[in-house]
């Protein structure tokens, strides 16, 4: 019974954020609901893993939700159809995200993203927030897959260098 009260509290405090993650990545309400359920089962049964992670609790929970949702879209999409899906997805504009940014750590990462070329920063954001694959990003940005891979790898290294500066 004690466990259940703890779970209720965890759910109350985090489900809206984690549902936001699932919705954004999966873009389908029914599937996001299913994913959210699976995410909480995972969290509940793997809570011991948190002890070895250095992440803050909410970052750890978001990471589980993001990774689960991304695994789901990868499993869902056949190579042929995810290209179509990529074409349908609008370019994630920096506008709405910048508006949500409260400051501090978020401000810093956006400052570092600003140091990247514009389309590369957009690709990084699209990948992180929506779980877009190299293949999808390549189609949307009109570049070969390997070019996209090189872009993003270099961007990740630059980001790290900027964040550690």
């Amino acid at each position: 019974m004690k466990d259940r009260a703890a779970f209720d509290l965890l759910y109350r405090q985090t489900s809206a954020k984690l549902f936001g993650v699932c919705l954004r990545v999966l873009k389908d309400r029914g599937e996001a609901e299913e994913a959210l359920q699976e995410v909480f089962v995972k969290i509940w049964t793997k809570a011991d893993r948190f002890a070895v992670s250095e992440l803050s609790p909410i970052s750890w929970l978001v990471a589980i939700a993001r990774n689960h949702a991304i695994d789901r879209i990868r499993a869902r999409r056949e190579p042929a159809t995810y290209i179509d899906a990529a074409l349908e997805v609008a370019d994630p504009a920096p506008g709405p995200e910048a508006a949500v940014v409260a400051g501090g750590e978020s401000e810093r990462i956006y400052r570092c993203l600003d140091e990247l070329e514009k389309d590369r920063a957009a690709a990084v954001r699209g990948a992180y927030l929506q779980g877009e694959s190299y293949a999808e990003l390549a189609v949307r940005h009109g570049v070969p897959l390997n070019t996209m891979r090189t872009w993003l790898r270099r961007s990740l290294l630059k980001l790290r260098e900027c964040l550690e500066r």
Binding site: R4, F7, Y11, S15, A16, K17, F19, G20, V21, L23, R24, E33, L36, Q37, F40, V41, W44, E54, L55, S56, S59, W60, V62, A63, R66, P96, E97, V100, V101, A102, G104, E105, S106, R108, I109, R125, Y128, L129, L159, R160, L163
Partner: peptide, 28 residues
């Protein structure tokens, strides 16, 4: 995860429907 996690601030909070919690209670 720690480096990139600040980007997660851009995920808007959305209240899930109550049936998700009910299903979880049954399941767990």
């Amino acid at each position: 995860e720690a480096r990139l996690s600040p980007m997660a601030a851009a995920y808007p909070e959305t209240e899930p429907p109550i049936r998700v919690k009910e299903a979880l209670d049954r399941r767990l």
